[in-house]
Simulated assay, not measured.
Amino acid sequence: MAIKRVTYNTLSYLVAEIKDRYAEKSAIGALGGLDKVAVENLADDLKKLINGKANAATTLAGYGITDGMTATEIASAISTAIAGTDHLSRVMVDSTADINVAADGAEKKIYMVKNTDGEAGNLYSEYMVIDGKLEKVGDWKVDLSSYAKTTEVTAAIANALTAYAKTADVTKAINAAVAGLIQLDDLSVASTGAGNVVTGLAYDNKTGKFTVTKGLTALTEADFTEITQQEVKAMFA
């Protein structure tokens, strides 16, 4: 005999519970019978709130804000502030004769004059215009003494790797460790018994064989029937 997925009595009880717990549209007032509630269906005070809302806008003026700065005004204010700030810039010159102490903005520059007596040509003397006069404020050079050379780095890497095994050594160690163990190709599955429900599972760790035992027959989709649409509609009649 076929078995239905949900008994008719159970579904009838469910429908009765729904009717008992939830009110019908006709019992919850005028809004209950509407598919969509419009502003006209709302109370006057709620209508005023909705009608007085601000519409979406892309500018501050669109929201009624008239004292905010525009993007152009903000960019202009930033540029003005930066331009009014004192800052130093570096200038490369061949000699102090090329420095014009009376030039506009001369006191805001650091003049780098190459020193021919410098080490490997990487030495410069720094000058600034102070109170209208050129003053030497220091020397500058590139110091690479604390940096390792390429050959030193290569030797350090090679020395650090001496404690690590090579790829060939690792492969050899792995092959030796798995020798005699069950390989993936050795794994197999066999089944015994009748039915479509597994009642037992055994594994042989020497051969790598799994044995599945079947001893029961479970219901399948063919053993069930659907409740018809007519039966469902009859419960809501």
Rank of each mutant, 00 (worst) to 15 (best):
A56E: 14
Y63A: 01
V93Q: 00
I99K: 04
V129M: 00
T59C: 02
D98G: 12
T72G: 11
A56L: 14
A106V: 01
A106N: 01
E119Q: 13
Y127E: 04
K108C: 03
D67T: 10
L88E: 08
T58K: 11
G118M: 04
I74L: 09
K53I: 10
A102W: 02
Y111R: 00
L123I: 09
I130W: 00
E126A: 12
M112G: 06
D98Y: 03
Y124V: 09
K108W: 05
A54I: 14
R90P: 00
K109W: 01
A56H: 13
L134G: 01
I82R: 14
G62S: 08
V101G: 05
I78A: 09
A57I: 05
T72R: 08
N115S: 11
G118L: 04
Y124H: 09
A75S: 15
I65L: 12
L60A: 13
S125T: 12
T96G: 05
N115R: 09
G62P: 08
S79R: 09
G118P: 02
M69E: 14
G121A: 05
G68D: 09
S89N: 09
D67L: 02
I82D: 10
T96D: 00
N115F: 06
A120W: 10
T96Y: 00
K114M: 13
T59E: 04
I78F: 12
K114Q: 13
I78T: 07
A103M: 01
V91P: 00
T66M: 11
A57T: 11
V91F: 01
V113N: 03
L134Q: 02
I74F: 10
L123E: 14
I78Y: 08
G62C: 05
T66L: 14
T116C: 04
A71M: 14
T80P: 05
I74M: 14
S76H: 08
T70K: 07
E119C: 07
A81D: 08
M112L: 12
L134T: 00
T70C: 02
T70N: 01
A56P: 12
D131V: 07
A61N: 15
I82V: 15
A106Q: 06
G64Y: 06
T80C: 08
A54F: 14
D94Q: 13
A106L: 03
K114V: 14
K108V: 03
G62F: 08
T70E: 00
V93H: 00
T72M: 10
Y111E: 02
A81I: 07
A81P: 07
L123N: 10
K109G: 00
T85N: 10
V129G: 00
I99Q: 03
T72V: 06
